[in-house]
Amino acid sequence: MTADVGVAPLRRTGKRRWRWNVGMLALPVGAWLVFFFIVPFGLIAWYSFGDKPSLYQTHSNEILSLDRYFDALDPTFLAIFGRTLNIAVTGTVICLLVAFPIAYWMAVKLPARFQGLVLGLVLVPYWTNFLVRTIGWRITLSPESFLADISRNLGFGTPDWLYTSGAVQLGVVYNYLPLMILPLYVALERLDHRLLEASRDLGASAGESFRRVTVPLSLPGIGAGLLLVFVPLMGDYITPAVLGGASGSMVGQMVASQFQTAQNWALGSAMAIVLMLAIALAVIVFGLIFKVIGALIARSERVTVLDDGVAEGRTA
């Protein structure tokens, strides 16, 4: 424990009811986040039980009901929600499949002196404005772009890539790929490379040592990556707005339009709450499945022994 707990009591004899504690430095942020993050969320939760009384009012809580939730779950919303879920799950899986070899290459195959450089190269597009990157794809996929010129010159005609759900799928995979690469890279880099060599020396094939050593030990990184990609992807609003058009819209846009164009805050709030609950539910279900898979792998592949060895090696 810190000095403040150990030393302070000696000097300040129990006159004050509370004594200064370093933990209190967390109070300003706590208060800030409660006031501007928790309370606003509570506010829209409250609005979601009200309604939009007239054309000129955005919300009213005169009459409380669950009607907005029934309104929110109408067929249009559910259809778009289904499409969003589809894009999000597909996008997350594609991100994992694309990112794993990249992260593996960076962490295991690249010489240590190039790792920092390549990491920087991954971070540059990640820190480029999200909207601007997406506009880059919009230019590329538009019928006037250089790719379209190439397509015409090859005799494939003018492509109509833009404003399709395929464009949105490409856009989200692109936009969230760094969020998958980074945790995977961190996990694979921490993996003790000697374990891989040991498994090879003990006669495991490359595929086998990958399956029985690399994958189980990088499971935490995989989990973090899936979470970091899936959650923001479900609420994405920029990518479909730039690339999707009418046929590629997602839930985030529906929520936004209730606040920005329809001015129906009650319904918009209900939609936002539904979205949050759905994401939380998906994460919980997914977390449980992930735990079960991890446990099954650990049991069947006996990596628990290995894992303990690593843990001891680390802490020693």
Partner: peptide, 21 residues
């Protein structure tokens, strides 16, 4: 957990809750 929640909440939810607030 509070900080984690701030980091993982989709921006759109933050946005629509801050506007009325």
């Amino acid at each position: 957990a509070l900080l984690g929640l701030v980091l993982v909440t989709p921006e759109i939810v933050n946005a629509v809750s801050l506007l009325p607030w």
